[in-house]
């Protein structure tokens, strides 16, 4: 899995094709919106009975990145759990995986709107926000927090070659991470809710090789596209 390197307010960052953000200098890995326990919450509330395997699927993908990068710190950028009741209901295999990932490194939970409190019985510590160089890590973009910000929450996706791909959204003062959880939907980058947060900038589409494209600018004419 390769990555796209870029500068963000003095930080040299890498947007990994898997959807995690990597800061090599600090050995710090940021992952957003794991939404563990999602199928459990839906089932509990009388919704569809989705395959109860998304926790394993999500953490196996995360483990592959941890193996590849050997981070000293892992930051969960909020909404690691689909709701607080999902924490005690976590499958043992998922719990064991999570503990293995947190072993021998610092694990920091940022609170999200789905998981505002300290996850009981899990490794790591909970904080509201976290400074990274000049930037602030927090779950949701917020006017009361100093910019530049690095956030999750929106699950951005872009349409590329007829496919929807999860994507990083890189604006002048906000960097939005894609959702990492297996069962997370996506919000189009040109959706008004996202356009309000990052009006113009670049999207970095996830995939075995990350691809960069502009967002917010008027899309090039059809004539250009047909030339290829």
């Amino acid at each position: 899995m390769s990555g796209h390197g870029f500068d963000y307010h003095g930080l040299r960052l890498v947007a990994r094709g898997s959807g995690v953000l990597w800061w090599p200098e600090g050995g710090l890995l940021v992952v957003a919106d794991l939404h563990l326990g999602k199928s459990e919450r839906l089932a509990r509330r009388g919704g569809p009975l989705l395959p109860p395997y998304e926790g394993l699927a999500t953490l196996e993908r995360l483990a592959a990145e941890v193996d590849a990068l050997a981070p000293q710190v892992i930051v969960s950028l909020g909404d690691a759990f689909d709701d607080m009741a999902a924490v005690p209901a976590l499958d043992e295999a998922v719990l064991a995986r999570l503990q293995a990932l947190a072993r021998a490194r610092d694990w920091i939970w940022l609170a999200g709107n789905h998981d505002p409190a300290v996850p009981q019985g899990l490794p790591g510590r909970l904080v509201g926000q976290l400074a990274l160089g000049r930037a602030v890590l927090c779950h949701e973009p917020c006017d009361t927090i100093p910019e530049p910000q690095i956030c999750g929450h929106f699950h951005p996706v872009v349409r590329l070659a007829g496919e929807r791909r999860r994507a990083f959204l890189l604006g002048a003062r906000r960097l939005i991470l894609p959702a990492f959880g297996a069962y997370t939907g996506g919000l189009d980058c040109d959706d008004p809710a996202l356009a309000a947060v990052v009006p113009r900038g670049l999207a970095i589409a996830c995939g075995s090789r990350p691809l960069v494209l502009p967002v917010g600018a008027p899309r090039p004419s059809a004539a250009i596209r047909r030339r290829r």
Binding site: F6, L160, A161, E163, L202, A205, G207, S208, R209, L211, V212, L213, P214, A217, R219, P220, I224, R225, R227, R228
Partner: peptide, 23 residues
């Protein structure tokens, strides 16, 4: 094939926006 198509499209979009140096 599919990967290549996506790459070409992304590059064309960046070039059109004058941003080819960012990719």
């Amino acid at each position: 094939g599919r990967e290549r198509l996506a790459r070409i499209e992304a590059e064309a979009l960046m070039a059109e926006a004058g941003l080819q140096d960012f990719a």
